[in-house]
Structure formats: C-alpha cells, structure tokens
Design a protein around this nucleic acid. Sequence first.
DNA 1: TTATTATATAGAACAGTGTTCAATATAATT
DNA 2: AATTATATTGAACACTGTTCTATATAATAA
Lengths: 211, 211
Amino acid sequence: MVTSLGIKERKAREVDHRRELILTAAEEIISSEGIDKLSVRKIAAKIEYSPSLIYHYFKDKDEILKHLMEKSYKKIVALLISVQSSTEDPTDKIRKMTESYIHLALQMPEQYKTIMLNSSPDILAHTSVLFDGASTKRQAVAILCKCLKQIDKYKNADDKQIELTAQIIWATTFGLIIRMIIENEIDEKQKNLLIQHHIQHIENGIIQGKT
Amino acid sequence: MVTSLGIKERKAREVDHRRELILTAAEEIISSEGIDKLSVRKIAAKIEYSPSLIYHYFKDKDEILKHLMEKSYKKIVALLISVQSSTEDPTDKIRKMTESYIHLALQMPEQYKTIMLNSSPDILAHTSVLFDGASTKRQAVAILCKCLKQIDKYKNADDKQIELTAQIIWATTFGLIIRMIIENEIDEKQKNLLIQHHIQHIENGIIQGKT
DNA sequence: TTATTATATAGAACAGTGTTCAATATAATT
DNA sequence: AATTATATTGAACACTGTTCTATATAATAA
C-alpha cells in the first residue's frame, strides 16, 4: 500500500497529459468547426480513443467546456492586467483596455461566445459581473473600478456608482463584441469605426459626462 | 380541374391553422422549458401528431424558429414605433424607447435570446444592424437615427456618424439585456439601477457629449 | 513469483435529437 | 366510381450525451 512517490507523480502527470490531450482536441474542433459542432464523440475520434473513455477524465461535456472557459478567461484577465500596468493615464488605461479586450475577443470568437453566452452555474461563477458587489468579486470589474477611481471626476464618487459604471462598460462592450461576432461579414473598416465610436462614447459619457 | 374557390380557401385556412398550431406549441415549449429544450418531437407530442408530419408544414426546425423570430421581431419594432410617435422631445424618445425596449426584451428572455443570438442568414437578414448602411435597411436603426437627427447637436452631423451612434446604442443595449438574461438571479432593484445607469450614460455620452 | 487490487480502455446499449422515405389513409377532382 | 392530390404515419438513418458492464493493463501485497 506504500506507493512510491515517483510512480504516483508519474501517474498524475499521465492523467494530466490525457486531460490536456482531450482539452486541446476539443479546442481544435471549436476553432475549426465552431462550438456548436463540438461533440464528445468527435473529441474521442480525434484522439483515437472510445467516447466512453472521456468520461473517465471528465465528469461530462460541460466540465470540458468549463476547463476551456477558464483557460480563455484567464487569458483575458491577464491581458487586462498587462495593459493596466503598462499605461499611466487612467483614461488611457480604460481606452487601451477596452480596445485590446475587444481585439482579443475577436481573435477567439468561438471561445468568447462560449464563455460569455453560457449560463451554467460553474461558468457564471467566473463570468457574471452585473450583481451587486461584483467589484470585489470579479477581477475584471475590480480593475475597471480601480481605473475609474484614478480619474479626477470619480475621486469622491460613491463606490456603488463606480461599480455600476464599470458594469455598464463591461456589459455594453460585451454587446458590441457579440454582435460583431454574430453578424459575420462586417468588413474590417466598419468594425474599426464601430470600435472607435464605442470607445469615444465611453470617454464622452462615462469619463467626461456628468455623473 | 376547376377547383371551387371555397374549398381552396378552406384548405388554405386549414393549412394556416395547422402551421399556427405548430408555432404556438413551439412557443409554449420555449416559454416554459427554454429554447434549448425545444425539439421537433416535443412539438409533435404536444399537438398529438407524428414528428414527421411537421416536415409537411415546415421545411425544417430552423424554419419554425424563423417564423417565431419574425413574430417577436415585429413585436419589438411595433413597440419602438408606438413609443416614437407618443413622445415629443427627441431625448425623451430615445430614453423611453431604450427603456421600454429593455423591458419588453426582459419579458420574453428566451425569444429575445433566440432572435439576437442566432446567426443563420435568414434571421440575420432581419436582425443584423452593424453593417455600413443599416440606417436605411433596418427599421429599428432608422427610427433611432431619426430621433438623433432631431437633437440639436446632430442637426448638422454627418449621416454616417449618426448611423454609427445608433448602431452603438443598439449593440450596447443588446449587451446589457443579454447579460441580464444570462446572469439570472440578479434582483430587480439591481436590474433597474443598471438600466437607469445605462440610459444615463447614453444621454451623457451620446446626446450631451462632444461628437 | 503469484495473487490481489486499482486503473485504463473499450463495446454495447439507452434515450434523446433532426430528418428522410416509403406506405397508407383520407379527401378532392375528374 | 376511378383517379389524382393531400395528409398522416411508422420505420429507419445518422447523429448526440451518457452509463454500465466487461476486459485488459498496470501497481501493489503476499
């Protein structure tokens, strides 16, 4: 019963490896065929194992998605943090964050849709941002709030008002992104106009406008 | 070969009746169980016919959805028109239109999701609003543009800029609605705060801010 | 080494999905 | 009354997610 530590660790690595194998196969299918076409059987075929094996490494299809979502979500948060720390002026920060957030999302449209349009509790635990108190529980909202607070106008503003503003920035930007993804065939020029217009309106309305 | 007109019309009515039967059954299932749980077989069971019969009245499941979408979409446009004609001040119009649009959407969450998150060409033909020229081809955008033009600030504004503003209002409002639907369990009070904040920001940024 | 136990993998099966096709019943027209 | 058109069904196909039982493989204990 005294299992050697080396073997235990190798086992764990092998399990991790198989799980990674399944996840990357799923990711490839999503990237090439879209989230709607992802199926357990297709993943199994891709890694050349039986479909039932997958249930040995993941509880169900949703758990696979959950892992992929988490990965994509971390990517997004990491981006926001990097922009935040690389920029000085708070207004610039928000502009740049919004801009690069949009571009990142548009580079992984299927993943973004999957993350943000999913309403399973597990995923909402990461992605929900509109509830009262989100600024302390959601990193993305927290970062936005922090930036807002650095703007003179919000120096003495109510925390709740700042949170609401951050939530609106988040939700509205989400809306623009999702519709740009859904309405495929919008040409790049138009996309850029929309993005710039949206950012300009955030600045006008939220940063310069009255509270 | 000379079919009596009366019978032909009765036949047509019967066909329409069966189609309506199928559509309302589908609508009931969507309302009670959500769009994800809608299936051809469930519709068939509800109207007590065999599943294959449905394909005698509709090409496929998508065509059924298409019809439901069109119905909901017309409801929305009708609302916008009624608000538009019942209000004088253009800023008020936009405020009220946005407000009642949001409330209508929240009253039919499953239908709204189905309309606005669908990317099939047939449905996009009604719902796409972000392309260059949408203000002349989409009634909803056209109404918004008309209101914007009545605001002093936009009197001499470029048509393209007005269209972009309308598109951003539309896309961002869509975003707020979808996230409120997806993040269920947000309490009413918070929902109302978000809605008011969003509308305020539209006014601040789009109506009062600089262009 | 052998026996035992844990893990990995596969195959078959269930219940569900959308859809098609051939057969039949019903109604309308000649 | 015979023929043609329409309405309706049942069976089948190819999918889907998932579960269960059986088996092969590897790790541990004796």
